[in-house]
């Protein structure tokens, strides 16, 4: 079942909150994972793996470095869902 962009953003915000404690409503499309949200690489990998499970999507390691902003991740996940 494909998720809408809005659903992916909300789900991703939940994963970020769960991993880091950052308030879900602070996870907005234009925010950078590292510069704005201060998420380290280890947390990022955990979030990516959990996102793969949650949205039935594969996010290859070489793709992760391109996911600079929350919007990048939401776009990638929305476009690549099974």
């Amino acid at each position: 079942m494909a998720h809408s962009q809005q659903e992916v953003l909300a789900g991703l915000a939940e994963l970020v909150n769960d991993e880091t404690g950052i308030a879900a409503d602070a996870v907005q499309m234009e925010k950078s994972f590292t510069d704005d949200l201060d998420i380290d690489s280890i947390s990022m990998m955990t979030i990516v793996v959990n996102a793969e499970d949650k949205f039935s999507v594969k996010i290859p390691d070489e793709e992760v470095k391109n996911l600079i902003t929350v919007g990048d991740a939401v776009t990638y996940i929305t476009a690549n869902q099974d």
Partner: peptide
Amino acid sequence: PRRVLPMTVP
């Protein structure tokens, strides 16, 4: 292996 937590070593 992909599901092994990145925090495992520390």
